[in-house]
Design a binder for these strands. Structure first.
Lengths: 341, 341
DNA sequence: TTGTAAGCGTTATCAC
DNA sequence: GTGATAACGCTTACAA
């Protein structure tokens, strides 16, 4: 036996209620709402009137179960606090919204195991697509995704071997390009400050890019001027002090994170180290702030919003049967040169 | 007749498949997974083994439909780009994650009609709770929510008359307190720069707070030194110039938005207007950056992360039958005084 | 163009 | 402690 016994009262209005009020069958209601053109005008009007009168809100849970189609896309970021991701999220949201889809968000706290848990949870919610910032994953994550038959886009780095699709830019190339830019401005002793490397493919790729540039330039990498720091303005300031102390001939620092760079700039002001006279400063991720610093800071600009748009579109394309083969889309980057270099 | 005809193959493994493999009924599988203690140890193990072997992921869509219980909370923000909200989102996510719940996000683009549409969409998804940054809503929004029987928390301002619950701080009191602080530092001609006011209850409350403080101080409000600006560092800089031009005796400016204040600070540096000598600067929303400016900027600190935690907890409490009466929780604010005032 | 019947994968209920 | 059965509210497939 079922429930609905002691007037336990589910609150919500069902399609059948609309059908009664409009004097039609539930199927006609369903059609009138989803394919109005497939229903005669009279019925169509009676249905929409009934819907308005009794306040019917179609139950998408039931629709999803029945049709085996979901409209929810899952996004997993390392952190929700990072304002850089905000642009990407907005791009995703804009595209999904236009298509009548929805967005679920989780964060992995920069932990692979948490990413795995979040993916499992999303698959249980039967999301119709998965957007992952990470490109490094646990084995079980790979297995889950292989089984799931759901489009997946990795967006944090243009990895060589995506799980499925990749829409991003090359952290490696970007970091290399910026290092070469500094060299092009006559700098030779170029420090490098990275965010934590553990399980972070983006940070690792950026460091690799920096090292690749040095190799190409025939400059030997000097571990004393390569720092791994936590995030935050304070960490940037501290890094700046430590580098200046470690190497008197230091003539440039490349910060692989915007907040670090800002902290470093402010520290230079405090210490009276002129930029770029005494030392050049370059940043990754072109936040608004950098161009308003004094001097304005040279930076790698990443098309974060576009990455969001394109990864969402990649999922939708797959769902709609357009563009069925896995894509690997490079949205590039730009070196924005300003007065700090 | 149903489907499952020409081997159209829904991919996913069902509870029944687990049941077969474990040699038990589907109900036992369901119980073993949700209430392990209600199943004998032997069956429990057989079930978990079967689950692992065939890679079963419970279908939460079906579970939700059957049990009329969802684990998804919907959050609607004016924008996803604003990094201030990021802290709140993280707080929400942390709490929901711990409780095994999930988060859907949408943005209203600061438009009431979009908020309404997002709420309708979320209700169709049968979210178990709704978190709204806005406190101003369309009539239809109010009707939708009244019908929905879902816990709702408004988090952008501690409104006097919440739809249901409110977890926030008083924008009015905060702006008033900061204005009084400036007066307490001997300032009399205090400019005020706000973000767009239209349909934005937070901005309106902040301006009301500013005006209330002036009234209390017996200072007449001067429209020439009250500006409404779009967001961004550039707008802050521009506002600063216009205010200095409009009123030579200007001795303080209160920016009701952190990015505006930063832009203004940078402009003061460029123009050689000493802070706080020539003019004091105060900000709303204590972002990291403000304390690293030179001089560090006095600001209202809002407990954004805690607001996120508490609003999520309010929803969960209601769902679990704890704390059934509507709460209105004031998380307060702090005036962080620094060298700019 | 409209309606009927079956079934989506789970859980609530009751019987054993 | 375990299982059979009937829903949950919708859509697919097919018949009229």
């Amino acid at each position: 036996m079922g429930r609905r016994k002691y007037g336990d009262g589910r609150a919500s209005v069902r399609i059948q209620d609309v059908a009664h009020h409009a004097g039609v069958s539930p199927m006609t209601v369903s059609r009138a709402l989803r394919n109005p053109e497939k229903v005669s005008e009279g019925l169509r009007r009676r249905v929409t009137e009934a819907v308005d009168r009794i306040g019917y809100l179609p139950n998408r849970i039931a629709a999803s179960l029945s049709s085996d189609r979901s409209t929810v896309v899952g996004l997993i970021l390392p952190s929700l606090r990072n304002s850089l991701f905000a642009n990407t999220v907005q791009g995703i949201s804009d595209v999904l919204h236009t298509a009548g889809h929805h967005l679920m968000i989780a964060d992995s706290g920069y932990a692979l195991a948490e990413e795995e848990a979040a993916i499992q949870a999303f698959l249980q919610q039967r999301v119709c697509g998965l957007l992952l910032h990470n490109t490094k994953h646990t084995d079980r994550t790979r297995r889950l995704i292989a089984q799931a038959m759901v489009p997946v886009v990795e967006i944090g780095d243009l990895t060589q071997h995506p799980l499925d699709m990749a829409v991003s830019y090359s952290n490696h190339q970007a970091a290399k390009a910026m290092t070469l830019h500094l060299a092009g401005r006559g700098r030779r002793r170029i420090g490098f400050v990275t965010l934590p490397l553990e399980d972070n493919d983006r940070s690792l790729e950026r460091r690799r890019g920096y090292l690749a540039a040095l190799a190409e330039l025939g400059i030997e990498a000097d571990p004393r001027i390569m720092l791994e720091m936590p995030g935050g303005t304070g960490a940037g300031a501290q890094a700046m002090r430590r580098l200046m102390q470690a190497e008197a001939r230091l003539d440039a620092v490349f910060f692989a994170g915007d907040v670090l760079a800002i902290g470093a700039m402010l520290e230079c002001q405090r210490q009276g180290w002129t930029v770029p006279g005494r030392v050049a400063i370059a940043s990754f991720d072109d936040v608004d702030m950098l161009q308003f610093m004094n001097p304005a800071v040279t930076s790698v600009r990443i098309p974060r919003y576009d990455i969001g748009r394109c990864c969402a579109e990649a999922v939708l394309d797959r769902l709609h049967g357009r563009a069925c083969e896995p894509i690997r889309l490079d949205l590039k980057f730009e070196i924005i040169q300003r007065n700090s270099t």
